[in-house]
Computed example of a mutant assay.
Amino acid sequence: MVDASVAKRLVQAIIDNLPEPVPGKRPVHTIGIGVKGEFVASDVARTYCIAEHFKGQPVPVSVRFSNGLGGLEQHDGWSDVRGMATRFHLPDGRGTDLIATTLGEFFVRNVEDFFEFADVAKLEKYERRAWWRKLGDLLQLKVPPRNPYPNETVSVDAGALRYANRHRFAQLGIFQVSLIGAPVSYARASYHAVHTFWVTGSDGARRPVRFSWQPVAGVRNTDPKAVPRDKYLFEELKNRLRRWPARFMLMMTIGEAGDALDDPTKPWPGTRIRVVMGTLTLIKVAEDQEADGERISFNPCRLVPGIEVSADPILEARLGAYEVSREMRGGCPFRWR
């Protein structure tokens, strides 16, 4: 775990880049909705991982879907990262978390990179870019800044793109953010945990893996040419779950020799073995959103025997940073058990 002072600086760097921080709320992924359901592991899951929630019995879950932006403005139709934080409630009273977003790879390798990114990617006044400047960007193989959405006055995009143009390792993640789009439903997006974890199988073998959630209904975004809509994702999910459950497959990709195990900016080859670890069935929107969404303090390092963190410095830093954020908003404390 990183030093407490560094964890506080990480959270403060995020807050300093927000247009309107909201006291008592998460600094980013502020807007969210809690959902209840259950997870059932596949028949082969226990072969690859001995963790409690992969033994085959139904496990109750709490899921919080969220928009990546900070603040209380619910710009559902904007191109933005979405989050899916999952708490598995184990039979012995413990819980373990899996935090994923629609971003396939991260944009910094370590804490030092993050502080530099935060310094470069400051909020700036949004200005419409002339067509000939956009053409010049494309000829230089640069992604041009997009035009502002209606009523959007400030953005981090320009600074983030400057950072990406200076640092090759950041380009994939930052370009994904700029092109990611808006899902028609929280249940129609793929979510990636981005970090590497180590799992222990029933044969005692340890394997490096990465997790992702894939929607059974398929991935679908809104029309990027249409005027963005606001405040549709909550109602769409409520209406969807009134009619039928929403399902996700938990996919586990197994790393091989030469794959980046401690760098979340680097993708793994698409030829890697992927294992279906189980099915998540979302049943209903939680009645008590405060208890079952806002006060739950998800943490990617809240793990149980069978799953361990890797040497990824960003993953290590998230343990402390999430705790600082939790303390600032009065969420439930981190517990190993």
Rank of each mutant, 00 (worst) to 15 (best):
R220C: 14
Q140G: 11
A4Y: 07
H89Q: 04
M277L: 02
K284L: 07
R9W: 01
K122I: 14
R94A: 05
E236A: 12
V275R: 03
G204D: 03
L237W: 00
D288W: 03
Y149E: 04
Y126P: 13
K55C: 04
I14Q: 13
T253H: 06
I283K: 11
Q140F: 13
D203V: 02
L141G: 06
R188F: 01
V285I: 11
G37C: 03
T200C: 08
T30N: 02
K142Y: 02
A217P: 11
F115H: 00
A170Y: 00
R168L: 13
E112Y: 10
S5V: 13
G136V: 14
R146A: 00
E290F: 14
P228E: 10
R295Y: 13
V59T: 14
W78Q: 06
V11T: 08
W78G: 07
S178V: 14
V59K: 05
I180G: 01
L237I: 02
S325A: 09
R146W: 03
A85S: 14
M252T: 15
G306L: 04
S297A: 12
S178D: 13
R207K: 15
S155T: 08
L319G: 08
R94T: 07
E316I: 07
D92N: 06
R220H: 11
F88S: 01
V275C: 02
K125S: 10
H195Y: 08
D288H: 07
P21Y: 01
G173T: 00
T253L: 14
P245D: 00
Y322K: 08
M249V: 15
F117W: 09
G136W: 09
M84C: 06
W131H: 06
F106C: 03
P23L: 05
F211K: 15
G136K: 12
V227E: 10
R206Q: 06
H75N: 11
D76S: 12
Y186C: 01
E294K: 15
R109Y: 09
T279C: 15
N239M: 15
T200R: 08
G104S: 11
T253N: 06
E290S: 15
Q57G: 14
T253C: 03
R9S: 04
E152P: 06
L303N: 05
V61S: 00
P183T: 04
Q171C: 04
S212A: 09
Q171V: 07
E105Q: 15
P150F: 06
L103M: 13
F234I: 02
P300W: 04
V81C: 12
I99V: 11
W336L: 09
A45D: 01
T265D: 04
D223M: 12
L141S: 11
D113W: 13
A160V: 02
G181R: 02
P228K: 07
E327R: 15
R247C: 08
V40P: 05
H167C: 02
L98E: 06
L319R: 10
K55R: 11
R210S: 13
T86S: 07
